[in-house]
Amino acid sequence: MDASKTRRFEAVVLPHLDAAYNLARWLTHSDQDGEDVVQEAYLRAFRFFDGFRGNHGRAWLLTIVRNTAMSWLEDGRASSATREYDEERHAGAHSDGPEAQLARKDERGQVNAALKKLSVEFREVLVLREMEDLSYREIAQVAGIPVGTVMSRLSRARKEFAALLAKEDGNGR
């Protein structure tokens, strides 16, 4: 099969758009920044795509998304006006497919609030591990740290998250 570069890129990388956006959105805290980061990351990915070989498109793409998001945050390009809105309140405005319903059911305040308050390096390992089911080795690749560091960082992230969650649960109930 001699698919052209664009076609091959679409087939390998586009399927992971949700994972890319979820990571970018959790790292930047904003819909707008999340979209911008993902678009920039996809353009970068396209540029480097010739060098990509193999089957692990997901980890490869998430590495680029992660790095794009981090430099985005470091450069202070995060949108100044926070564009987040009350998701509970606006949930009804979204499309009403089963996915939307499912997502809405899952919008439970405390876990989201606690995750949001975590430092970015703790948040990224938890999102990659618990939401995207990446292996330690893949997380090491994406976050650019040794596998041993992944494990210790996950452990510290869980402790910190548990502490924040305890606080949130106390407030919310």
């Binding site: 979820n22 996809y42 353009l43 618990e130």
Partner: peptide
Amino acid sequence: IKGEAKYHAAPPRLAARILASL
């Protein structure tokens, strides 16, 4: 986290935006 954290699926327009920008 699996059950309660919000999974941010990409908005449908994002795929179109990316394809248009390639």
